[in-house]
Amino acid sequence: MRPNVTTIQPNNILDGVTGAVFRQEVAAAVEAGADIVLVDCQDISFMDSSGLGALVLALKFIRAAERQLVLCSLNQQVKTLFQLTEIAQVFQIYDNRQHFEQSGLLGS
C-alpha cells in the first residue's frame, strides 16, 4: 500500500514567527493521516535558528506519531546552517522532489 504523503512548502523566511505556523501545518498533516510529511524547502529564502528549531520540533512530533519527516530542495543558506549545526544527519534529505519520488519510500 502506498503511503499517504503530504507536502508542505514554506516560503520566504522560516523563523520564530513563521515556524509556529509551520508546526501547525505539520500537526494538521499528521492529524489528516499523512504517513510522510515532505517539506519542500525550495522557496525558503532564509532560515534562522528559530526556523531550524521549528524543523527539529516538527521532527520530534512526527517521530512520536510514528510517521516520517523528509526534506528536499534545500538552498545553499539552509545547507550551510545544517552543516554549521551538524543537524543534517538527523534529517532525511533529498536533492529535490524527483529524487524523493525515486527513493523507494513511496513503495510500488
Rank of each mutant, 00 (worst) to 15 (best):
S50I: 04
F46D: 07
L59E: 00
D40S: 12
E66S: 15
A34E: 10
G51S: 08
L81Q: 11
F100L: 10
L105D: 00
N96K: 10
N12C: 13
L71Y: 02
T85N: 06
N75L: 06
E25W: 04
E31S: 12
G51E: 02
F61Q: 08
S49Y: 13
L14K: 02
V21C: 06
V39M: 04
P3K: 14
A20T: 12
T18M: 08
V56D: 03
Q98G: 06
L52D: 09
K60H: 11
V78H: 04
Q68I: 10
T85W: 06
Q68M: 10
V56I: 15
A34Y: 00
S45I: 09
T6I: 07
G53H: 15
N11P: 02
Q98D: 11
L105P: 00
R67H: 14
L38R: 01
Q68Y: 13
S73Q: 00
A27P: 02
N4C: 15
T18N: 12
E31A: 13
V30K: 03
Q89L: 07
A27H: 08
N12Y: 15
T18Q: 03
T85K: 05
I8S: 07
I93L: 11
E25R: 07
D95G: 09
V70P: 05
R23N: 03
I93T: 07
R2S: 13
L105H: 07
P10Y: 05
Y94C: 05
E25Q: 05
T18P: 01
L38Y: 03
S50P: 01
N96A: 13
L105S: 02
L14Q: 04
Q98W: 09
G104L: 06
A32H: 12
M1W: 08
S50D: 09
I36C: 11
S49G: 10
L38P: 00
Q42N: 13
N11G: 15
E101A: 11
C41A: 15
L38K: 02
N12D: 15
L57D: 08
T7L: 09
Q24T: 05
A64N: 14
A54S: 14
I62S: 04
A28I: 07
Y94K: 03
A27M: 09
E86T: 06
Q98N: 12
D48C: 13
G16S: 14
V39T: 07
K79M: 10
A20R: 10
G104N: 07
F82P: 00
A58C: 04
V37I: 15
T18L: 05
F22T: 01
L105A: 04
G19W: 02
T85C: 08
Q92L: 14
I87H: 03
V78K: 00
G19R: 00
